[in-house]
């Protein structure tokens, strides 16, 4: 058991704002863990390749923290996208024991695909998950990536995501972040070349004493690149969320655009929301916007739904679903979509 400091922001602010990093106590980092086998991989067609192989992830620019990134993985996957048919790959981890996974995704020039990675606990055994997902998008490629975290709330969840985007590539990332006692995510996108596009949509839903620490960083380097971050969340009970979002316009990214929107719905008077939506700008001819809002569920909307015969809990569920719907609609897999909607209902009961 030790105290670890994770998820440092790219730029520091005053210490007493309590947001430069997250300090976690009593985190048991597993050692010498056995190979993880409880994973199912479904690949549409035969062109895209998912193989068990050592990945080439040496160092991360950011990541959750070295202490976690240096643990030897017990599952490594290498995915190569070679098809232009926008076929789906589904990787389904069932966390019956600790999982340290490294996933490397290479999206070859001109190809496209849908990739869904799901982490789920089928029971309430306490486990530990620390993953790294690194995606490289070559020129004119496109991938729609969905990460679903449905781990139980006894377990800890750490995820480091890193992306490199070459010219004219499009990365659509959707993160459904519901599970984990502590769910700590670091997301870093490097939009290296011109006209690269990255859209990141996240929904989180916290209950009991769950803590979410989301540290999202987008660096725009190529001309006419575009980064869009939208985060929608709801917190009940004593749940807490820290959102740290950075859009960094680096020199040379002329005519680029960056947007960051963060909305948090507080469903109890003991839930807490801390946010740091940063815009860093070293280039003149760009457009950067962020907006952030926090508050309780709208009384008027609740009243309207309840006047149609729903009780308060059902009305609240409908409101949360409505807020999340735009992001959930990004998921084309109907089965998964329904599973997420059911999970929302279950967590709000």
């Amino acid at each position: 058991m030790e105290k670890i400091i994770l998820n440092e922001t790219p730029v520091r602010t005053a210490k007493n704002f309590n947001i430069n990093n997250i300090k976690l106590e009593n985190i048991e980092i597993p050692k010498n863990i056995k190979t993880f086998n409880n994973v199912q991989v479904k690949v549409e067609g035969t062109t895209n390749i998912v193989e068990e192989a050592e990945t080439n992830i040496n160092t991360l620019t950011y990541g959750v923290g070295n202490k976690l990134q240096n643990i030897e993985p017990n599952k490594s996957l290498k995915i190569t996208i070679k098809s232009k048919k926008n076929q789906e790959i589904l990787i389904d981890f069932n966390l019956d024991k600790d999982l340290i996974d490294n996933i490397e995704i290479n999206v070859e020039e001109g190809t496209n695909a849908i990739l869904i990675i799901k982490y789920k606990s089928e029971n309430d055994i306490k486990t530990f998950h620390s993953g790294i997902i690194k995606t490289i998008l070559q020129k004119n490629s496109k991938i729609n990536l969905v990460i679903v975290n449905l781990i139980n709330i006894k377990s800890n969840n750490f995820l480091s995501i890193e992306n490199e985007l070459k010219a004219n590539s499009i990365l659509k990332y959707t993160i459904i972040d519901f599970g984990g006692k502590n769910s700590i995510t670091n997301y870093y996108s490097n939009l290296q070349e011109q006209e690269a596009e990255n859209e990141l949509n996240t929904i989180y839903l916290g209950k009991d004493n769950q803590l979410f620490d989301l540290n999202y960083i987008g660096e725009l380097r190529g001309e006419k690149s575009n980064m869009n971050i939208e985060v929608q969340g709801a917190l009940k009970d004593n749940a807490k969320k820290h959102f740290k979002g950075t859009i960094d316009f680096k020199k040379g990214c002329k005519k680029s655009k960056g947007n960051e929107d963060e909305f948090c719905m507080l469903l109890s008077d003991t839930a807490k929301s801390l946010a740091l939506p940063m815009l860093l700008c070293s280039e003149e001819d760009v457009e950067g916007n962020h907006s952030s809002a926090t508050g309780k569920a709208g009384e008027k909307e609740l009243f309207y739904i309840m006047s149609r015969g729903f009780d308060k809990k059902e009305a609240m569920k409908l409101l949360v679903r409505a807020k999340f719907n735009k992001i959930i609609e990004n998921i084309q897999n109907e089965e998964l979509k329904n599973e997420i909607l059911e999970e929302i209902d279950k967590r709000l009961d």
Partner: peptide, 20 residues
């Protein structure tokens, strides 16, 4: 722009907008 927004209760109206 480096703003921190720390909201510790639900009965609030909070919004933040920034442009560069």
């Amino acid at each position: 722009t480096i703003p921190v927004n720390d909201i510790q209760t639900d009965e609030v109206e909070f919004s933040h907008e920034a442009k560069i």
